[in-house]
């Protein structure tokens, strides 16, 4: 039981990070119907930005950790948002009226570009960061197995849910959110009603990238080690989460993220050869969900019109 509880905590923390990335996929898919394959790599870039910003602040003398983390969060969100905007502007906007697979191919191209850019600019070696947020609480103890809830896990889950709340307010209560939902339903009609479609789509990418930056910072703090390749696997898992939750649905993305995080953690903990095959489990989930359950938990069925 204690072991189960510990895995549950770990799974929720991991799932929160996946959920934050998944929102970027689900929003973009909802509004322009494309898989932003480079989103996982935007997340990777953001974790590098966060790492460098954190080191720079430390050497600049900002040693009060909470202040430093807030500053890093802001820097990472802003700079990653610029990356998200640029990727959309350069690689996706010119292809909006092109054939269906064209944006996916450029997205793969962009993903390769981002990975290799970071590899060339920062080196291929893994980048370690000593634990920044330490400490935690002992919840229970059973037969010598201590269940820990660390501060970083609390930070991850709380940050995620606070941001989700803020985000939910943006989507449901502001003009931007209304414009987004309008573009989702019918882009031409929205344009005729005076919605600036290009701007709305750009802002969607900006918001998605900013949330990915939060995920990047949390990932860096949680695992303490990053490299240029983390975006690939994390991106695919987050995409799985978005599909599982119902692509296009924001609460679905969060729910899907939590489910994928839990599945991965429990698979590692209980399945034979679990840790080796945990990615296989996640990728199989992706295939199974897409094949048998493509509308997801909270999604609407997609009707193909001729």
């Amino acid at each position: 039981m204690a072991y189960f509880l510990q895995q549950l905590i770990n799974g929720l923390a991991l799932g929160s990070i996946y959920g934050l990335i998944a929102i970027g996929y689900t929003m973009v898919y909802g509004i322009i119907g494309m898989i932003n394959f480079a989103h996982g790599d935007i997340f990777m870039v953001s974790s590098f930005i966060a790492l460098i910003a954190f080191l720079a602040l430390m050497s600049a003398g900002v040693t009060f950790i909470p202040l430093a983390l807030v500053l890093v969060l802001i820097i990472a969100m802003v700079l990653t948002a610029v990356w998200g905007w640029t990727v959309e502007r350069v690689a996706y906007r010119p292809l909006r009226e092109s054939f269906r697979l064209a944006p996916l191919i450029t997205a793969i191209g962009m993903s390769i570009v981002l990975q290799n850019f970071i590899q060339v600019a920062q080196g291929a070696r893994v980048k370690p960061l000593p634990p920044v947020v330490t400490g935690g609480y002992q919840i229970t103890e059973q037969n010598g197995f201590v269940v820990n809830l660390s501060n970083i896990q609390i930070l991850v889950v709380v940050t995620t849910f606070v941001l989700m709340g803020v985000f939910w307010l943006i989507i449901t209560r502001t003009a931007l959110g209304r414009a987004q939902r309008a573009c989702e339903q019918d882009r031409l009609m929205a344009a005729l009603c005076g919605v600036n479609v290009d701007r709305t789509i750009s802002l969607t990418f900006v918001l998605g990238a900013a949330l990915a930056a939060v995920a990047g910072l949390l990932y860096l703090l949680y695992y303490g080690v990053i490299d240029f390749f983390i975006g690939f696997v994390a991106g695919i898992k987050a995409f799985t989460a978005a599909v599982l939750g119902g692509i296009g649905s924001l609460p679905g993305a969060m729910l899907g993220g939590l489910v994928i995080g839990l599945i991965e953690t429990f698979w590692s903990a209980y399945a034979p050869h679990g840790p080796e095959y945990k990615d296989v489990a996640a990728f199989s989930m992706l295939a199974l969900v897409l094949i048998f359950f493509p509308t997801g938990l909270l999604g609407r069925p997609e009707v193909e019109k001729v």
Partner: peptide, 20 residues
């Protein structure tokens, strides 16, 4: 060769944008 994949990716994007 370090820049090979970088240029591959850029070329993929450029080709899709200009000559799909």
């Amino acid at each position: 060769s370090l820049y090979r994949m970088l240029l591959f990716g850029l070329a993929m994007v450029a080709i899709m944008v200009w000559r799909p």
